[in-house]
Measured scan of single mutants.
Amino acid sequence: MEVRTIKVFTTVDNINLHTQVVDMSMTYGQQFGPTYLDGADVTKIKPHNSHEGKTFYVLPNDDTLRVEAFEYYHTTDPSFLGRYMSALNHTKKWKYPQVNGLTSIKWADNNCYLATALLTLQQIELKFNPPALQDAYYRARAGEAANFCALILAYCNKTVGELGDVRETMSYLFQHANLDSCKRVLNVVCKTCGQQQTTLKGVEAVMYMGTLSYEQFKKGVQIPCTCGKQATKYLVQQESPFVMMSAPPAQYELKHGTFTCASEYTGNYQCGHYKHITSKETLYCIDGALLTKSSEYKGPITDVFYKENSYTTTIK
């Protein structure tokens, strides 16, 4: 009895394709271990004539594949690729409408935090270190965002349907971005203890939790000093293409032309909904596939993004 075979390709990165001759009487799992086709788990399936010449994702289970996976995804987590594939199996079914010149995501599976993050990423200057993220990001900007969303979920250790947080998501993504040249110098002034300067680099240099107003941050924000008295913390120097200011959701007025974009969060910790506000020729609110415009805006804002380049204080 002759062994019926077909020729397929296996890959971990969709760049390096490895030619395989597979036995049609055995499952993919018996031949390769966990195997995925377009995100779908085909591990328990036997090869079919229609699979001839198709590319299958496999887990990096030998040295060659491990090197290829690390170079593309910059992670050695053995569960990463499987999590990416199972997320992709959902995100490829989502709709990605162009809204006001940006790629958004039609609401499904509690994905409003991903839509808000995706919209924000198209408006701030950011370059990702893992080629996987950078490639998928370019495709997302062009309207094909399924891979990018699935990668975000995998890097953030999230599953489809789980509630997510924009600030946490951005923080994970910033860790995989090139923020080497970003720098922030802060000064804390206390009447009792004097003053202390701190220099922050990388992710810490672009994120701040405690106030939404970048102007206020430049002037000074009140913080408790270690001595128990009130101290003032203010920005001395900022070198970065953008800054992200966050605070627990509270009524906040966004003035046209003073910011790049913002995240609105309605609801409580267990259950809520994100919308995205962007400042173009007027203010726009993007909620999944829905767009509304207004000249002014007041609502429960939790993150505001500002364009920056270089700032030095005039406070002496």
Results as ranks from 00 to 15, higher is better:
residue 2 E to N: 12
residue 2 E to P: 12
residue 2 E to G: 06
residue 3 V to N: 13
residue 5 T to W: 12
residue 7 K to N: 10
residue 8 V to L: 10
residue 8 V to M: 10
residue 11 T to M: 05
residue 13 D to P: 00
residue 13 D to N: 05
residue 16 N to M: 15
residue 16 N to G: 10
residue 16 N to A: 11
residue 17 L to P: 00
residue 17 L to W: 11
residue 17 L to I: 08
residue 20 Q to N: 15
residue 22 V to Q: 02
residue 22 V to F: 04
residue 23 D to M: 11
residue 24 M to L: 13
residue 28 Y to K: 09
residue 29 G to E: 12
residue 29 G to F: 08
residue 30 Q to K: 12
residue 31 Q to E: 08
residue 31 Q to G: 05
residue 31 Q to V: 15
residue 32 F to Q: 08
residue 33 G to W: 03
residue 35 T to R: 00
residue 35 T to H: 15
residue 35 T to S: 12
residue 36 Y to K: 04
residue 37 L to E: 13
residue 39 G to N: 09
residue 39 G to I: 07
residue 40 A to Y: 13
residue 40 A to R: 11
residue 41 D to G: 10
residue 41 D to M: 10
residue 43 T to A: 11
residue 43 T to N: 07
residue 43 T to W: 03
residue 44 K to Q: 15
residue 45 I to N: 12
residue 45 I to M: 13
residue 46 K to H: 15
residue 46 K to V: 12
residue 47 P to C: 07
residue 49 N to F: 13
residue 49 N to A: 13
residue 50 S to D: 13
residue 50 S to G: 13
residue 51 H to N: 08
residue 51 H to A: 07
residue 52 E to L: 12
residue 52 E to T: 12
residue 55 T to L: 06
residue 55 T to N: 14
residue 58 V to D: 05
residue 59 L to S: 12
residue 60 P to G: 05
residue 60 P to W: 08
residue 60 P to L: 09
residue 61 N to I: 11
residue 63 D to T: 06
residue 64 T to D: 12
residue 64 T to Q: 15
residue 65 L to G: 11
residue 66 R to Y: 10
residue 67 V to S: 15
residue 72 Y to V: 07
residue 73 Y to W: 05
residue 73 Y to S: 06
residue 75 T to P: 08
residue 77 D to C: 09
residue 77 D to T: 06
residue 78 P to N: 09
residue 78 P to V: 09
residue 79 S to M: 14
residue 79 S to R: 11
residue 80 F to A: 03
residue 80 F to C: 02
residue 80 F to W: 07
residue 81 L to D: 07
residue 81 L to M: 13
residue 82 G to F: 12
residue 82 G to P: 13
residue 82 G to I: 12
residue 83 R to F: 05
residue 83 R to A: 09
residue 85 M to P: 10
residue 86 S to R: 13
residue 88 L to W: 09
residue 88 L to V: 03
residue 89 N to G: 13
residue 90 H to A: 12
residue 90 H to C: 12
residue 91 T to N: 02
residue 91 T to A: 06
residue 92 K to L: 13
residue 93 K to D: 14
residue 95 K to P: 07
residue 95 K to L: 12
residue 97 P to T: 09
residue 98 Q to E: 06
residue 98 Q to H: 10
residue 98 Q to P: 01
residue 98 Q to G: 02
residue 99 V to M: 13
residue 100 N to K: 14
residue 102 L to W: 15
residue 103 T to R: 08
residue 103 T to H: 05
residue 104 S to A: 10
residue 104 S to E: 00
residue 106 K to F: 07
residue 107 W to I: 06
residue 107 W to R: 00
residue 108 A to W: 02
residue 108 A to M: 02
residue 109 D to T: 06
residue 109 D to P: 00
residue 111 N to K: 05
residue 112 C to T: 01
residue 112 C to F: 05
residue 114 L to K: 02
residue 114 L to R: 01
residue 114 L to N: 03
residue 114 L to A: 05
residue 114 L to E: 01
residue 117 A to S: 07
residue 117 A to T: 10
residue 118 L to A: 07
residue 118 L to F: 09
residue 120 T to V: 08
residue 121 L to N: 03
residue 123 Q to A: 07
residue 124 I to T: 03
residue 125 E to V: 03
residue 125 E to G: 09
residue 125 E to D: 15
residue 125 E to M: 00
residue 126 L to K: 10
residue 126 L to W: 07
residue 127 K to S: 14
residue 129 N to P: 04
residue 129 N to I: 10
residue 129 N to G: 09
residue 130 P to I: 04
residue 132 A to G: 09
residue 132 A to E: 07
residue 134 Q to R: 13
residue 136 A to F: 08
residue 138 Y to K: 15
residue 138 Y to M: 14
residue 140 A to G: 07
residue 140 A to M: 13
residue 142 A to Y: 13
residue 142 A to E: 15
residue 143 G to M: 03
residue 143 G to L: 05
residue 145 A to Y: 02
residue 146 A to F: 01
residue 147 N to M: 10
residue 147 N to F: 06
residue 147 N to I: 08
residue 147 N to L: 03
residue 147 N to H: 12
residue 148 F to W: 04
residue 148 F to S: 00
residue 149 C to Y: 02
residue 149 C to I: 12
residue 150 A to N: 00
residue 150 A to D: 06
residue 151 L to Q: 01
residue 151 L to G: 02
residue 151 L to S: 11
residue 152 I to K: 00
residue 152 I to E: 01
residue 153 L to Q: 03
residue 153 L to I: 06
residue 153 L to D: 02
residue 153 L to K: 07
residue 154 A to P: 08
residue 155 Y to A: 05
residue 156 C to S: 10
residue 157 N to E: 07
residue 157 N to H: 07
residue 158 K to H: 01
residue 160 V to A: 03
residue 160 V to S: 02
residue 160 V to R: 05
residue 161 G to D: 01
residue 163 L to Q: 07
residue 163 L to P: 10
residue 164 G to S: 05
residue 165 D to G: 04
residue 166 V to T: 07
residue 166 V to L: 07
residue 167 R to I: 03
residue 167 R to Q: 06
residue 167 R to N: 05
residue 168 E to S: 08
residue 169 T to E: 07
residue 169 T to P: 06
residue 170 M to S: 04
residue 171 S to R: 14
residue 171 S to Y: 15
residue 172 Y to E: 01
residue 172 Y to F: 12
residue 175 Q to F: 02
residue 177 A to L: 01
residue 177 A to K: 00
residue 177 A to E: 04
residue 178 N to V: 04
residue 179 L to D: 10
residue 179 L to Y: 00
residue 180 D to M: 10
residue 181 S to I: 07
residue 181 S to D: 14
residue 183 K to R: 13
residue 184 R to D: 00
residue 184 R to C: 06
residue 185 V to S: 05
residue 186 L to T: 14
residue 186 L to R: 08
residue 187 N to Q: 12
residue 187 N to A: 11
residue 188 V to D: 00
residue 189 V to D: 14
residue 191 K to F: 07
residue 193 C to V: 04
residue 194 G to P: 06
residue 195 Q to E: 14
residue 195 Q to R: 09
residue 196 Q to K: 14
residue 196 Q to G: 07
residue 196 Q to C: 09
residue 198 T to P: 00
residue 199 T to K: 08
residue 202 G to K: 08
residue 202 G to A: 07
residue 203 V to K: 14
residue 203 V to I: 08
residue 204 E to Q: 14
residue 204 E to R: 11
residue 205 A to D: 02
residue 205 A to H: 01
residue 205 A to W: 07
residue 206 V to M: 03
residue 206 V to T: 02
residue 207 M to Q: 08
residue 207 M to D: 05
residue 207 M to Y: 08
residue 207 M to K: 06
residue 209 M to T: 14
residue 210 G to R: 02
residue 211 T to G: 01
residue 211 T to K: 03
residue 211 T to W: 01
residue 211 T to S: 08
residue 211 T to H: 02
residue 212 L to D: 02
residue 213 S to T: 06
residue 213 S to M: 04
residue 213 S to W: 03
residue 213 S to Y: 08
residue 214 Y to W: 06
residue 214 Y to A: 05
residue 215 E to R: 06
residue 218 K to Y: 05
residue 218 K to A: 01
residue 218 K to E: 01
residue 218 K to G: 02
residue 220 G to R: 03
residue 220 G to V: 03
residue 220 G to D: 04
residue 221 V to R: 00
residue 222 Q to Y: 07
residue 223 I to G: 15
residue 223 I to F: 14
residue 226 T to M: 11
residue 227 C to Q: 02
residue 228 G to T: 03
residue 228 G to V: 01
residue 228 G to R: 06
residue 233 K to C: 15
residue 234 Y to N: 02
residue 237 Q to H: 15
residue 239 E to F: 08
residue 239 E to T: 12
residue 240 S to E: 05
residue 240 S to D: 01
residue 241 P to W: 05
residue 241 P to C: 06
residue 243 V to T: 04
residue 243 V to H: 02
residue 244 M to F: 02
residue 246 S to K: 05
residue 247 A to I: 07
residue 247 A to G: 06
residue 247 A to S: 10
residue 248 P to D: 04
residue 248 P to T: 06
residue 248 P to W: 05
residue 249 P to Y: 00
residue 249 P to G: 00
residue 249 P to L: 04
residue 250 A to G: 08
residue 251 Q to S: 10
residue 251 Q to A: 10
residue 254 L to S: 02
residue 254 L to M: 02
residue 255 K to W: 06
residue 256 H to C: 13
residue 256 H to A: 10
residue 257 G to I: 02
residue 257 G to H: 05
residue 257 G to K: 04
residue 257 G to M: 00
residue 258 T to H: 13
residue 258 T to I: 08
residue 258 T to M: 09
residue 259 F to D: 04
residue 259 F to I: 02
residue 259 F to E: 05
residue 259 F to Y: 04
residue 261 C to M: 02
residue 262 A to C: 03
residue 262 A to G: 09
residue 264 E to V: 10
residue 265 Y to N: 04
residue 265 Y to T: 07
residue 266 T to N: 08
residue 268 N to R: 06
residue 268 N to P: 14
residue 268 N to I: 00
residue 271 C to T: 13
residue 271 C to A: 13
residue 271 C to Q: 12
residue 272 G to S: 01
residue 275 K to Y: 00
residue 275 K to Q: 01
residue 276 H to V: 01
residue 277 I to L: 03
residue 278 T to N: 03
residue 278 T to Y: 12
residue 278 T to I: 10
residue 279 S to C: 14
residue 279 S to M: 01
residue 280 K to R: 14
residue 280 K to S: 10
residue 282 T to G: 14
residue 282 T to K: 08
residue 283 L to F: 07
residue 284 Y to R: 03
residue 284 Y to S: 05
residue 284 Y to N: 05
residue 286 I to N: 00
residue 290 L to I: 14
residue 290 L to E: 15
residue 290 L to V: 12
residue 290 L to M: 12
residue 293 K to D: 13
residue 293 K to I: 12
residue 293 K to T: 12
residue 293 K to G: 04
residue 293 K to Q: 10
residue 293 K to W: 07
residue 294 S to I: 15
residue 296 E to M: 00
residue 297 Y to W: 06
residue 301 I to E: 02
residue 301 I to D: 01
residue 301 I to G: 00
residue 301 I to M: 04
residue 303 D to V: 02
residue 303 D to L: 00
residue 305 F to W: 09
residue 306 Y to A: 03
residue 307 K to N: 08
residue 307 K to R: 13
residue 308 E to W: 00
residue 309 N to K: 13
residue 311 Y to S: 07
residue 312 T to A: 09
residue 313 T to S: 14
residue 315 I to L: 15
residue 315 I to F: 15
residue 316 K to A: 15
residue 316 K to L: 15
